[in-house]
C-alpha cells in the first residue's frame, strides 16, 4: 500500500499539467501580488505579503487537492485500471484511502514552495509557534477538497470530471476569498464566502498569522465539511465499484 501511494505521487509529479497549474501557478501568483501589494497592511495590521502567503498557499493546496484526485480517478475508473487493482489482494477501501493519502502528499510541494517564496523573496518571518499550526492546518484542511475531488471522480466520466473539477476549484478559490480578500469585495460576496468551506479553511491560516491561534468555529466547520464530503465520496466510491 505504501508503494502504491508512492507511485501515485510519483505519477502526478511527472504530470506536466499538475506541475504548471498546481505547483508553479500559486508561487508565481504569490510573487506578482506580493511585489505589488506586499508592503500594505490589512485591517489587523498584518503585512499583505504574509496575508497573501496564506491565500496563495491555500489556493495551491486547494488546486492540488482537486487536480490530483478528480480527473485521474475518473480516468482510472474508465480505463479499467481500477478493475486491475480490484482483482489484486488490495482491499477496496485501501484503494480510496491510498488515493487520499497520495493526494495529501501532493499538496505539500505547493504549500512549501509558496512559503519558501514568501520567506526568501518577501522576507516574511514568523515564530515557529505560528508556522507549525499554519502549515499543519493548511495541510490537513485539504481533506474535504480531496474528498470533493474523489466524489466528482467517482460520479462523472473523465471528460465531465475535468470541467466539473475546474469549476469547483475556481468557485471555491474566488468565492472563498483566496484570490481577493473578501473584505475588499461587496457584502453579497462576503455572505457567500461564509458558505464556502474554502473560506473557513483559509481563515484558519489568516487567524494564525494575525496571532489569534486556530479559531474553533472554523476548525469545526472544516471538520464538518470533511465529514459531509468524505461521506459523499465514500458513497460515490461504493456505487462506482459495486458488483452488480
Amino acid at each position: 500500500m505504501l508503494y502504491y501511494a508512492k507511485t501515485e505521487a510519483l505519477r502526478m509529479l511527472r504530470n506536466r499539467r499538475y506541475i504548471i497549474f498546481v505547483v508553479l501557478f500559486p508561487v508565481v501568483f504569490y510573487l506578482i501580488n506580493a511585489n505589488i501589494y506586499g508592503d500594505q497592511k490589512d485591517a489587523g495590521g498584518v503585512r499583505m505579503s504574509t496575508y497573501l502567503l496564506v491565500s496563495m498557499a491555500a489556493y495551491g493546496a486547494l488546486a492540488s487537492s482537486m487536480m490530483s484526485s478528480a480527473v485521474p480517478w475518473a480516468q482510472e475508473r474508465q480505463s479499467g485500471w481500477l478493475r486491475q487493482l480490484q482483482i489484486t489482494p488490495l482491499p477496496s477501501w485501501a484503494i480510496i484511502v491510498t488515493k487520499l493519502g497520495a493526494a495529501m502528499l501532493l499538496v505539500l510541494p505547493s504549500l512549501l514552495l509558496v512559503s519558501a517564496a514568501a520567506v526568501l523573496q518577501q522576507g516574511v518571518s514568523m515564530p515557529a509557534g505560528q508556522w507549525l499550526p499554519l502549515l499543519l492546518s493548511l495541510w490537513i484542511g485539504t481533506i474535504p477538497f480531496i474528498a470533493l475531488g474523489l466524489f466528482i471522480g467517482s460520479l462523472l466520466s473523465a471528460d465531465a470530471a475535468q470541467p466539473a473539477a475546474m469549476i469547483c476549484m475556481f468557485a471555491l478559490s474566488l468565492l472563498g476569498g483566496l484570490w481577493f480578500p473578501i473584505d475588499a469585495i461587496g457584502g453579497t460576496m462576503r455572505t457567500l464566502a461564509h458558505f464556502m468551506p474554502s473560506y473557513h479553511y483559509a481563515n484558519l491560516g489568516w487567524n494564525v498569522i494575525a496571532g489569534n491561534g486556530l479559531p474553533m468555529s472554523d476548525v469545526l466547520i472544516v471538520v464538518a465539511w470533511a465529514v459531509v464530503l468524505g461521506g459523499a465520496a465514500a458513497y460515490a466510491y461504493r456505487r462506482a465499484t459495486v458488483r452488480a
Binding site: T7, L10, R11, R14, E76, S79, G80, W81, R83, Q84
Partner: peptide, 10 residues
C-alpha cells in the same frame, strides 16, 4: 481483462 489501460506516467 478486455479493456485495461496502464497508468501513462509510470
Amino acid at each position: 481483462l478486455q479493456s485495461g489501460q496502464l497508468i501513462p506516467e509510470l
